[in-house]
Amino acid sequence: MTPRDGGCVEHPDRGPLSKVEMAALVARDIEPGSFVNLGIGQPTLVADHLPAGSGIVLHTENGMLNMGPAATGDQVDPDLTNAGKQPVTELPGASYFHQADSFAMMRGGHLDVCVLGAFQVSASGDLANWSTGADDAIPAVGEAMDLAMGAKQVFVMMSLFAKDGTPKLVPSCTFPLTGVACVSRVYTDVATFELGEHGARVVETFGITRDALAARLEVDLA
């Protein structure tokens, strides 16, 4: 279990975590009965680890609650997709609604948790996940900013280091922001963090000690 306060738990013999293992960690920390939006990409893996009977309801921002697993074979219906435009299924108790309602649910404080990917997260919870700011990039934002500011809790799932070894948990984001002071937890392949006004606190480490981790980051760890 993740300690809710107090010290960091080190798992030096376990890790770095795979994406599937990260998804399982995220799923473990979602309260039963929550309304949850899983972002496109890695966060969709979390759905596979939500315990049966947890009563967790998945929201997809294109207009549905109680979204079911991916559709296969005869289940595929072009009128029923997730936010990544992949065919999905509906669970008993599903509901459909239009876009203004779907985003009002977020902004209005009705959505408990969203899980997003990120390019960078700052120690104070700023999120950058929609643009690298590259000159030749075609910008696209979709639901990212609405989710970042709307969900009661924003969890981020990402590798802690970019391919060039640069940390993605940073003192201050250099990429264009998605939202300010919105991320509360970060799940990475080598550590999980809680963020807040106090800065970043290491909750658990995987395959690395807290001290070795701290030496590779520029952020001060609480």
Binding site: E61, H98, Q99, A100, S102, F103, A104, M106, R107, D126, S131, V141, G142, E143, A144, M145, D146, M149, G150, P176, L177, T178, G179, V180
Partner: peptide, 28 residues
């Protein structure tokens, strides 16, 4: 942002002159 796109059209359709929204604060 997708939610602002929807809400801006909702505002037009509902006769709302403009609205204050938290989405995008502090972003480009």
């Amino acid at each position: 942002p997708q939610g602002n796109l929807a809400e801006r059209m909702r505002a037009a359709g509902a006769g709302i002159g403009a609205f204050f929204c938290p989405t995008g604060v502090g972003t480009p």
